[in-house]
Design a protein around this nucleic acid. Sequence first.
DNA 1: GCCAACGTTGGC
DNA 2: GCCAACGTTGGC
Length: 161
Amino acid sequence: MPQSRRYWLVKSEPTVFSIHDLAKSPKRTTGWDGVRNYQARNFMREMTVGDLVLFYHSNADPPAVVGVAEVVRPAYPDDTQFDRASHHYDPASTPAAPRWDMVDIKHRETFQAGVSLDRLRGEPKLKGMLLLRKGSRLSVQPVTESEWATVLKMAGAKTGT
DNA sequence: GCCAACGTTGGC
DNA sequence: GCCAACGTTGGC
């Protein structure tokens, strides 16, 4: 029996990389590089091809879940960690023992209207959602199947479960 | 192993 | 721009 699809949420500042940037990327796909947090990295390592991802705009007005992406390549070493010129350069990491990974995600849907943080907070079914926890800063995090279904319904999404 | 100092995230 | 919350670093 194949392992069932899992659900995730990734954050991005739209001024840095927005859902529209993802939609315009070659093959509507991008490498999710630059993650420099162990917990977030470990979640990326758990991702498998076909997993679905909520795309969240942080530091936005308003902060909101704005669309859906799909994992199209599982975790592999993030090249920016070896690049001295990169803002994400990590001098402690070596190609022989890479510390940071990335995955590739592909654009699936941009919601007609994003689901704002306020609306998420107002939904009782999302009470336990990691994103809504005070002080939660994880940029890659798991989403339960019921949270997934709830957010997609709120968004009037075309993507199903 | 403790913890102060520092850096970052992200809502407001 | 502020600042609370959190993660990491490094001296001891």
